[in-house]
Simulated scan of single mutants.
Amino acid sequence: MYFLGFRMTKEDLHISAAAEPLFCIGGTIEGKHCSPGTILPFTNAVLMTLLVDAILVGIAFGIGQRLQMVPRGFQNIIEFLIEFFYDFARGVDKKNVAKFFALPMTIFLFFLFGNMLALVPGVGSIGVCRPYAAEESHNTAATETAEGAHGTEATEVAAEEHSSGTIVDLATFPGACDHKGNIMVPFLRAPAADLNVTFAFAIVAVFMVEFWGFQALGIGYLGKFFINPAKEGVIMTLVGLLELFSEIMRIVAFAFRIFGNIFGGEVVLAVMIFLFSYLLPLPFYGLEVFVAFIQAVIFAVLTVVFAALAVQAHGGDHGDDHSHAGNEAKAH
Protein backbone atom coordinates (compact mmCIF):
# COMPACT_ATOMS: atom_id res chain seq x y z
CA MET A 1 0.00 0.00 0.00
CA TYR A 2 2.88 2.36 0.76
CA PHE A 3 4.47 1.86 -2.69
CA LEU A 4 1.07 2.20 -4.34
CA GLY A 5 0.94 5.75 -3.01
CA PHE A 6 -1.10 5.47 0.21
CA ARG A 7 0.21 7.91 2.81
CA MET A 8 -0.62 8.86 6.35
CA THR A 9 -0.96 12.51 7.26
CA LYS A 10 -0.23 14.31 10.51
CA GLU A 11 -3.92 14.16 11.38
CA ASP A 12 -3.69 10.36 11.42
CA LEU A 13 -1.25 10.55 14.34
CA HIS A 14 -3.85 11.20 17.00
CA ILE A 15 -2.65 9.62 20.26
CA SER A 16 -4.40 10.54 23.49
CA ALA A 17 -2.57 10.30 26.81
CA ALA A 18 -5.93 9.75 28.53
CA ALA A 19 -8.54 7.08 27.89
CA GLU A 20 -11.42 8.43 25.83
CA PRO A 21 -15.08 7.85 26.73
CA LEU A 22 -17.19 5.72 24.42
CA PHE A 23 -20.34 6.80 26.23
CA CYS A 24 -21.14 8.53 29.51
CA ILE A 25 -23.34 6.93 32.15
CA GLY A 26 -25.60 9.69 33.45
CA GLY A 27 -24.28 12.28 31.01
CA THR A 28 -23.37 13.05 27.43
CA ILE A 29 -20.15 13.31 25.47
CA GLU A 30 -18.94 16.85 24.90
CA GLY A 31 -15.93 16.86 22.61
CA LYS A 32 -13.32 14.58 24.15
CA HIS A 33 -14.87 14.43 27.62
CA CYS A 34 -18.12 13.68 29.42
CA SER A 35 -20.45 16.45 30.47
CA PRO A 36 -20.47 17.71 34.08
CA GLY A 37 -22.54 15.54 36.38
CA THR A 38 -21.65 12.30 34.63
CA ILE A 39 -21.83 9.34 37.00
CA LEU A 40 -19.25 7.21 35.24
CA PRO A 41 -17.48 7.55 31.87
CA PHE A 42 -17.23 4.22 30.04
CA THR A 43 -13.87 4.50 28.29
CA ASN A 44 -12.14 2.40 25.67
CA ALA A 45 -9.66 1.24 28.34
CA VAL A 46 -12.57 -0.04 30.47
CA LEU A 47 -13.94 -1.96 27.48
CA MET A 48 -10.51 -3.50 26.86
CA THR A 49 -10.21 -4.36 30.57
CA LEU A 50 -13.55 -6.18 30.49
CA LEU A 51 -12.47 -8.01 27.34
CA VAL A 52 -9.23 -9.18 28.97
CA ASP A 53 -11.17 -10.24 32.09
CA ALA A 54 -13.59 -12.24 29.94
CA ILE A 55 -10.72 -13.95 28.12
CA LEU A 56 -8.95 -14.89 31.37
CA VAL A 57 -12.15 -16.20 32.95
CA GLY A 58 -12.92 -18.13 29.76
CA ILE A 59 -9.44 -19.67 29.75
CA ALA A 60 -9.75 -20.65 33.42
CA PHE A 61 -13.12 -22.36 32.92
CA GLY A 62 -12.11 -23.87 29.59
CA ILE A 63 -8.91 -25.43 30.88
CA GLY A 64 -10.52 -26.37 34.19
CA GLN A 65 -13.23 -28.37 32.43
CA ARG A 66 -10.70 -30.25 30.28
CA LEU A 67 -7.76 -30.88 32.59
CA GLN A 68 -5.42 -33.61 31.40
CA MET A 69 -2.86 -35.50 33.44
CA VAL A 70 -0.35 -34.93 30.65
CA PRO A 71 -0.91 -31.29 29.63
CA ARG A 72 -1.01 -30.51 25.94
CA GLY A 73 -1.47 -27.45 23.81
CA PHE A 74 -2.71 -24.33 25.54
CA GLN A 75 -3.00 -26.05 28.93
CA ASN A 76 0.71 -26.79 28.75
CA ILE A 77 1.51 -23.10 28.12
CA ILE A 78 -0.65 -21.86 31.01
CA GLU A 79 0.71 -24.50 33.41
CA PHE A 80 4.26 -23.60 32.39
CA LEU A 81 3.65 -19.90 33.15
CA ILE A 82 2.05 -20.61 36.51
CA GLU A 83 4.63 -23.20 37.56
CA PHE A 84 7.56 -21.04 36.48
CA PHE A 85 6.29 -18.03 38.40
CA TYR A 86 5.34 -20.16 41.44
CA ASP A 87 8.87 -21.60 41.61
CA PHE A 88 10.27 -18.08 41.49
CA ALA A 89 7.95 -16.85 44.26
CA ARG A 90 8.79 -19.95 46.30
CA GLY A 91 12.46 -19.08 46.00
CA VAL A 92 11.76 -15.57 47.32
CA ASP A 93 9.64 -16.63 50.33
CA LYS A 94 9.03 -20.35 50.76
CA LYS A 95 6.96 -19.99 53.95
CA ASN A 96 4.41 -17.47 52.68
CA VAL A 97 4.21 -18.18 48.95
CA ALA A 98 0.81 -19.88 49.24
CA LYS A 99 -0.57 -16.79 50.96
CA PHE A 100 0.27 -14.10 48.44
CA PHE A 101 0.95 -15.98 45.20
CA ALA A 102 -2.55 -15.52 43.72
CA LEU A 103 -2.36 -11.69 43.57
CA PRO A 104 0.94 -11.27 41.66
CA MET A 105 0.01 -14.16 39.34
CA THR A 106 -3.29 -12.43 38.54
CA ILE A 107 -1.47 -9.15 37.93
CA PHE A 108 1.00 -10.91 35.62
CA LEU A 109 -1.67 -12.66 33.54
CA PHE A 110 -3.85 -9.56 33.26
CA PHE A 111 -1.12 -7.24 32.04
CA LEU A 112 0.45 -9.93 29.84
CA PHE A 113 -2.80 -10.55 27.95
CA GLY A 114 -3.75 -6.86 27.98
CA ASN A 115 -0.39 -5.71 26.65
CA MET A 116 -0.26 -8.40 23.96
CA LEU A 117 -3.81 -7.76 22.77
CA ALA A 118 -2.97 -4.07 22.45
CA LEU A 119 -0.52 -4.97 19.66
CA VAL A 120 -3.19 -6.69 17.56
CA PRO A 121 -3.91 -4.67 14.38
CA GLY A 122 -7.13 -2.72 14.75
CA VAL A 123 -6.73 -2.03 18.46
CA GLY A 124 -6.26 1.71 18.70
CA SER A 125 -7.02 2.30 15.02
CA ILE A 126 -10.65 1.21 14.64
CA GLY A 127 -13.24 3.36 16.35
CA VAL A 128 -15.83 6.08 15.99
CA CYS A 129 -15.39 9.45 14.30
CA ARG A 130 -16.25 12.22 16.73
CA PRO A 131 -16.12 16.04 16.44
CA TYR A 132 -13.64 18.06 18.44
CA ALA A 133 -14.68 20.10 21.45
CA ALA A 134 -16.26 23.42 20.57
CA GLU A 135 -13.29 25.52 21.59
CA GLU A 136 -10.88 23.24 19.75
CA SER A 137 -12.99 23.40 16.60
CA HIS A 138 -13.04 27.20 16.88
CA ASN A 139 -9.26 27.35 17.26
CA THR A 140 -8.80 24.95 14.36
CA ALA A 141 -11.11 27.01 12.13
CA ALA A 142 -9.30 30.21 13.05
CA THR A 143 -5.94 28.64 12.25
CA GLU A 144 -7.17 27.34 8.92
CA THR A 145 -8.56 30.77 8.05
CA ALA A 146 -5.27 32.47 8.91
CA GLU A 147 -3.28 30.00 6.85
CA GLY A 148 -5.75 29.88 3.99
CA ALA A 149 -4.31 32.86 2.14
CA HIS A 150 -0.81 31.37 2.26
CA GLY A 151 -1.75 27.77 1.53
CA THR A 152 -3.59 28.11 -1.79
CA GLU A 153 -0.63 27.03 -3.85
CA ALA A 154 0.11 24.02 -1.59
CA THR A 155 -3.54 22.97 -1.79
CA GLU A 156 -3.48 23.05 -5.59
CA VAL A 157 -0.33 20.92 -5.64
CA ALA A 158 -1.90 18.39 -3.27
CA ALA A 159 -5.04 18.28 -5.42
CA GLU A 160 -2.94 17.61 -8.51
CA GLU A 161 -1.08 14.79 -6.74
CA HIS A 162 -4.34 13.31 -5.55
CA SER A 163 -5.87 13.43 -9.01
CA SER A 164 -2.80 11.87 -10.60
CA GLY A 165 -2.96 8.99 -8.15
CA THR A 166 0.56 9.38 -6.77
CA ILE A 167 -0.58 10.10 -3.19
CA VAL A 168 -3.81 8.89 -1.61
CA ASP A 169 -4.75 10.24 1.82
CA LEU A 170 -5.97 7.54 4.21
CA ALA A 171 -8.79 9.92 5.19
CA THR A 172 -10.42 9.18 1.82
CA PHE A 173 -11.03 5.54 2.81
CA PRO A 174 -14.67 4.52 3.47
CA GLY A 175 -15.39 4.84 7.17
CA ALA A 176 -12.30 6.94 7.87
CA CYS A 177 -12.44 10.29 9.65
CA ASP A 178 -12.09 13.21 7.27
CA HIS A 179 -10.17 15.20 9.93
CA LYS A 180 -12.28 18.28 9.22
CA GLY A 181 -12.96 19.10 12.83
CA ASN A 182 -13.25 15.37 13.65
CA ILE A 183 -11.16 12.94 15.62
CA MET A 184 -11.05 9.14 15.67
CA VAL A 185 -11.78 7.61 19.10
CA PRO A 186 -10.70 3.93 19.15
CA PHE A 187 -13.04 1.30 20.56
CA LEU A 188 -10.19 -0.49 22.36
CA ARG A 189 -7.16 0.82 24.20
CA ALA A 190 -4.39 -0.99 26.11
CA PRO A 191 -5.40 -1.12 29.81
CA ALA A 192 -1.85 -0.29 30.90
CA ALA A 193 -1.95 2.85 28.73
CA ASP A 194 -4.60 4.27 31.07
CA LEU A 195 -3.35 5.64 34.40
CA ASN A 196 -6.68 4.78 36.04
CA VAL A 197 -6.01 1.07 35.48
CA THR A 198 -2.37 1.09 36.53
CA PHE A 199 -3.11 3.19 39.64
CA ALA A 200 -5.93 0.82 40.60
CA PHE A 201 -3.61 -2.20 40.41
CA ALA A 202 -0.86 -0.29 42.23
CA ILE A 203 -3.19 0.65 45.09
CA VAL A 204 -4.44 -2.93 45.45
CA ALA A 205 -0.90 -4.35 45.36
CA VAL A 206 0.50 -1.91 47.94
CA PHE A 207 -2.55 -2.25 50.19
CA MET A 208 -2.21 -6.05 50.22
CA VAL A 209 1.52 -5.81 50.93
CA GLU A 210 0.81 -3.66 53.98
CA PHE A 211 -2.04 -5.97 55.01
CA TRP A 212 0.23 -9.02 54.92
CA GLY A 213 2.83 -7.11 56.93
CA PHE A 214 0.34 -6.31 59.71
CA GLN A 215 -1.07 -9.83 59.53
CA ALA A 216 2.38 -11.36 60.05
CA LEU A 217 3.83 -8.92 62.60
CA GLY A 218 0.84 -7.16 64.13
CA ILE A 219 1.37 -3.63 65.37
CA GLY A 220 5.10 -4.39 65.45
CA TYR A 221 5.11 -3.93 61.68
CA LEU A 222 5.20 -0.18 62.29
CA GLY A 223 8.54 -0.68 64.05
CA LYS A 224 10.15 -0.75 60.61
CA PHE A 225 9.25 2.88 60.06
CA PHE A 226 9.03 4.50 63.51
CA ILE A 227 12.35 3.73 65.20
CA ASN A 228 13.24 4.98 68.69
CA PRO A 229 16.26 7.31 68.28
CA ALA A 230 17.32 6.64 71.87
CA LYS A 231 17.91 2.97 71.07
CA GLU A 232 19.17 2.93 67.48
CA GLY A 233 20.22 6.51 66.86
CA VAL A 234 18.95 9.43 64.84
CA ILE A 235 20.30 8.05 61.55
CA MET A 236 18.24 4.86 61.82
CA THR A 237 15.19 6.93 62.74
CA LEU A 238 15.59 8.94 59.55
CA VAL A 239 16.10 5.72 57.59
CA GLY A 240 12.82 4.40 58.99
CA LEU A 241 10.97 7.53 57.90
CA LEU A 242 12.50 7.22 54.44
CA GLU A 243 11.26 3.62 54.35
CA LEU A 244 7.75 4.86 55.18
CA PHE A 245 7.96 7.42 52.38
CA SER A 246 9.17 4.75 49.94
CA GLU A 247 6.22 2.51 50.88
CA ILE A 248 3.82 5.28 49.87
CA MET A 249 5.74 6.15 46.71
CA ARG A 250 5.51 2.55 45.54
CA ILE A 251 2.00 3.35 44.32
CA VAL A 252 3.32 6.05 42.03
CA ALA A 253 6.28 3.94 40.91
CA PHE A 254 4.06 0.93 40.15
CA ALA A 255 1.53 2.98 38.22
CA PHE A 256 3.86 5.14 36.14
CA ARG A 257 6.41 2.43 35.32
CA ILE A 258 4.08 0.24 33.29
CA PHE A 259 2.00 3.18 32.00
CA GLY A 260 5.07 4.99 30.68
CA ASN A 261 6.44 1.95 28.88
CA ILE A 262 3.17 0.85 27.27
CA PHE A 263 2.00 4.34 26.27
CA GLY A 264 5.48 5.22 25.06
CA GLY A 265 5.44 2.09 22.92
CA GLU A 266 2.18 3.18 21.32
CA VAL A 267 3.72 6.54 20.42
CA VAL A 268 6.84 4.92 18.95
CA LEU A 269 4.83 2.52 16.79
CA ALA A 270 2.57 5.32 15.52
CA VAL A 271 5.55 7.48 14.58
CA MET A 272 7.34 4.61 12.83
CA ILE A 273 4.23 3.70 10.85
CA PHE A 274 3.84 7.34 9.84
CA LEU A 275 7.43 7.65 8.67
CA PHE A 276 7.51 4.45 6.62
CA SER A 277 4.70 1.98 7.06
CA TYR A 278 6.39 -0.87 5.19
CA LEU A 279 8.86 -3.07 7.16
CA LEU A 280 10.25 -0.25 9.34
CA PRO A 281 7.76 -0.82 12.21
CA LEU A 282 8.50 -4.58 12.39
CA PRO A 283 11.60 -4.37 14.67
CA PHE A 284 9.69 -1.99 16.92
CA TYR A 285 6.76 -4.40 17.08
CA GLY A 286 9.22 -7.07 18.21
CA LEU A 287 10.56 -4.69 20.84
CA GLU A 288 7.04 -3.91 22.06
CA VAL A 289 6.24 -7.62 22.39
CA PHE A 290 9.27 -7.93 24.67
CA VAL A 291 8.31 -4.79 26.62
CA ALA A 292 4.72 -6.04 26.99
CA PHE A 293 6.00 -9.27 28.53
CA ILE A 294 8.75 -7.84 30.71
CA GLN A 295 6.57 -5.08 32.19
CA ALA A 296 3.99 -7.64 33.28
CA VAL A 297 6.80 -9.68 34.85
CA ILE A 298 8.29 -6.67 36.66
CA PHE A 299 4.96 -5.61 38.20
CA ALA A 300 4.29 -9.14 39.47
CA VAL A 301 7.85 -9.79 40.65
CA LEU A 302 8.02 -6.53 42.61
CA THR A 303 4.73 -7.42 44.31
CA VAL A 304 6.22 -10.76 45.39
CA VAL A 305 9.44 -9.16 46.64
CA PHE A 306 7.66 -6.38 48.54
CA ALA A 307 5.29 -8.90 50.13
CA ALA A 308 8.22 -11.07 51.23
CA LEU A 309 9.96 -8.05 52.78
CA ALA A 310 6.77 -6.93 54.53
CA VAL A 311 6.40 -10.15 56.54
CA GLN A 312 9.96 -9.85 57.88
CA ALA A 313 10.32 -8.15 61.22
CA HIS A 314 12.73 -5.27 61.83
CA GLY A 315 16.19 -6.80 61.94
CA GLY A 316 15.42 -9.65 59.53
CA ASP A 317 13.52 -12.03 61.84
CA HIS A 318 10.27 -13.53 60.58
CA GLY A 319 6.96 -13.16 62.28
CA ASP A 320 6.75 -16.95 62.70
CA ASP A 321 9.96 -16.87 64.74
CA HIS A 322 8.53 -14.14 66.98
CA SER A 323 5.33 -16.03 67.62
CA HIS A 324 7.32 -19.21 68.35
CA ALA A 325 9.47 -17.33 70.83
CA GLY A 326 6.36 -15.91 72.47
CA ASN A 327 4.87 -19.36 72.89
CA GLU A 328 8.07 -20.62 74.48
CA ALA A 329 8.04 -17.68 76.93
CA LYS A 330 4.47 -18.49 77.92
CA ALA A 331 5.41 -22.15 78.49
CA HIS A 332 8.25 -21.11 80.80
Rank of each mutant, 00 (worst) to 15 (best):
Y221V: 02
M272Y: 08
Q65S: 12
S125H: 06
N76S: 15
I29L: 09
G27L: 00
F254V: 02
F23K: 06
K32M: 06
A193Q: 06
M208D: 03
V301M: 07
F108V: 00
I227T: 01
R72T: 14
A313M: 00
L269R: 07
A310D: 00
V268R: 03
H162A: 12
D320W: 15
F113G: 00
M272R: 03
S16I: 04
L244C: 07
K95Y: 09
G148Q: 06
A300T: 01
F6Y: 14
F110L: 02
Q65K: 15
K10R: 14
S323K: 15
A54R: 05
Y278Q: 11
G151A: 12
V234R: 13
G265Q: 03
E30V: 15
A331M: 09
F214Y: 13
T28H: 09
A54I: 01
A142Y: 09
I248V: 15
I39M: 04
A193T: 08
L47A: 08
N261M: 14
G62F: 07
H322N: 09
G265K: 02
P186F: 01
E210H: 15
G286S: 03
A19Q: 06
F214V: 09
A98Y: 10
A141M: 05
L81Y: 05
I59M: 02
G175H: 09
L244K: 07
L51Q: 03
F306C: 13
F256C: 10
F199I: 12
C177T: 07
N196W: 06
D93L: 00
V305I: 13
E136T: 14
V271K: 10
L67A: 04
A98F: 11
F256P: 03
R66G: 03
E153K: 15
G122S: 02
M236F: 05
D169M: 03
L275E: 02
P174T: 05
V239G: 02
E20R: 15
T28K: 14
A292Y: 00
E232R: 14
G62I: 02
E266H: 14
D87W: 10
H322Y: 11
F306L: 12
K32Q: 12
A17L: 10
E83P: 04
V57L: 11
V206S: 08
